[in-house]
Design a protein around this nucleic acid. Sequence first.
DNA 1: GTGGTCTAGACCACG
DNA 2: GTGGTCTAGACCACG
Lengths: 139, 139, 139, 139
Amino acid sequence: MAAFHFNITTGAGTPIYRQIGDQVRLGVATGALAPGDPLPSVRALADRLVINANTVAKAYAELVRDGVVESQQGLGFFVASKKRQVYSRAERLRRLHQALEAFVHEAVFLDFTADEIRESVDEKLADLELQPKPAGEKA
Amino acid sequence: MAAFHFNITTGAGTPIYRQIGDQVRLGVATGALAPGDPLPSVRALADRLVINANTVAKAYAELVRDGVVESQQGLGFFVASKKRQVYSRAERLRRLHQALEAFVHEAVFLDFTADEIRESVDEKLADLELQPKPAGEKA
Amino acid sequence: MAAFHFNITTGAGTPIYRQIGDQVRLGVATGALAPGDPLPSVRALADRLVINANTVAKAYAELVRDGVVESQQGLGFFVASKKRQVYSRAERLRRLHQALEAFVHEAVFLDFTADEIRESVDEKLADLELQPKPAGEKA
Amino acid sequence: MAAFHFNITTGAGTPIYRQIGDQVRLGVATGALAPGDPLPSVRALADRLVINANTVAKAYAELVRDGVVESQQGLGFFVASKKRQVYSRAERLRRLHQALEAFVHEAVFLDFTADEIRESVDEKLADLELQPKPAGEKA
DNA sequence: GTGGTCTAGACCACG
DNA sequence: GTGGTCTAGACCACG
């Protein structure tokens, strides 16, 4: 992997550590990050994003906990070869629907129509270049 | 309106004051709460939910700011007769995108694909029977 | 911006949290506070003014809601780079009329004539050198 | 005095007792209420306005304190023959400017121009039918 | 009775 | 370090 870019938006609702983790997950999902690829070092990424090193460390720790990346003592962090599925499908669906509920309620409260909501979701997903997964992968 | 029930989950991620606000908004949206209906008094609701009165007051204050309910000096809070359009279109879009960001981040975190996300949104919108706005009304 | 001073009058009619908010708004309006300038931390300001931290937090939260300042997670509050137009025209008019009502009631209570009231408003506006908006800017 | 009408707006910022007091003061100022004219009884006005009798009593008490009306034991309240000036001119100006300051700050914050502010004040004063005082009266 | 403001202090998330 | 939420309780204005 050559050029994998992180970008974070501070001040938004989403915590920085979560944004970092999500971008790694997304990279793995889209294939931008392949198994074995190294992640930037904690310090390097913290410097590049001008954020606290603890924040990067927290993001990486969560990725390790979830089996997305693996830590090689003294070498750094690498994309895991095969990802463990941490949450059960039921649990994942439960959390998805909870998040969805919050989003749709806010949108309805803001007086947006179903079409406007759908459109905004489509745009956002296109932005993320979230592609359907190749074949028989996780999820 | 006869029996409007509040129930809160403590220990969950969502703050109590927000849970209260959301339930009132939802009640208004579904018609369970009609314009002019009184809300429980701050102290009464605090007692009933076994939480602090300040927490209820904070929830109610936010509802007033958003034009959902109105305060009648010395009498308490009542569902607003006609919901005002408090926010500018730019602000409403900003809030929509912020809510969307949080939702999509959670979905990505949970490893759902773009198709799965879109599908879940469609289902949810269908559930709500959210129709295009008839005229100058809110959906 | 070097030295921005807050001073509050306790025992007056105006709540402390509002006095703080007003002083920030005024500072922003006059340019004493420039976009990006940090506000004192909640705890620091509370200590300096010898008031409770919650009171400062309440003031800051209102400023965030109104788009005057922005919160940077873990870093504190900063003057917003460009003031958003948060409220709809209807809402802004509603607030103007409410403020006007309070003012005129006080003036009538104090037995001032219509001419005296008008004159005092003219003087005040002249003082502020409030000019018609140049372009898409705020006055 | 035959038909003197009170109307109060509940839910606004101004307390009801203040609205009642202001309308009496205004009536006296415009001549709608002449010295010796009776005010509605506390109970009658409370019934008519569908408010608490304590609220009317509080308004009347303040008017008596300020020398606008006089209480005749067992008969009720009457417009005072000659009004005492309660506050010094300096004090009245101080309070006027304080109220004005709050109003103008709010208006400026809401992005209204000087012209818009002046216009809104003129309209409001016209609504109140606040006329210049006849001759060498108070104020 | 109603809500509004403020305090002192705890505990948590994020950086 | 930063802010966010919540509690328990006081005191006040308004009705």
